[in-house]
């Protein structure tokens, strides 16, 4: 069930430690541990610290999860509370 051939590079954009960001991060970690154990890397970007990074990934909403690898880039906005949507969105589980 676990795909070994792929490595997942995820980036989560947050703006400070807001409840939504915290929820999103903990949700993300939970899903990754469940489905992508050992094959993922999560990078958290706090835009309050590095606002210049917002433009590169076309960030509008906070929190935004960007799947950098594998291509194509996918974005999921919100606190990631809906596991089904997150998994489909990240192409972990086919829709």
């Amino acid at each position: 069930m676990v795909r070994i051939d792929k490595k997942w590079e995820l980036r989560l954009y947050v703006a400070g430690k807001t409840p939504k960001s915290v929820t999103a991060l903990s949700n993300l970690k939970k899903y990754c541990e469940e489905h992508l154990k050992g094959q993922y890397r999560i990078e958290v970007v706090d835009l309050l610290e590095k606002p210049q990074l917002a433009e590169g990934d076309q960030i509008l909403a906070i929190p935004t999860l960007v799947r950098k690898v594998p291509e194509p880039i996918r974005k999921i906005i919100g606190d990631l509370s809906n596991e089904e949507k997150v998994l489909v969105g990240l192409n972990i589980r086919p829709a």
Binding site: Y13, A15, T18, K20, T23, A24, L47, L48, P51, A54, E55, Q58, I59, L60, A61, I62, P63, T64, P72, I73, R74, K75, I76, I77, G78, D79, L80, S81, N82, K85, V86, V88, G89
Partner: peptide, 22 residues
């Protein structure tokens, strides 16, 4: 600001703080 609906999935609560920051 590029918004492409096909690229974006919405799940749960969010705000536009990213736009504000930009």
């Amino acid at each position: 600001v590029h918004i492409d609906r096909s690229e974006i999935e919405e799940t749960g609560e969010y705000d536009l703080e990213g736009l504000f920051i930009r």
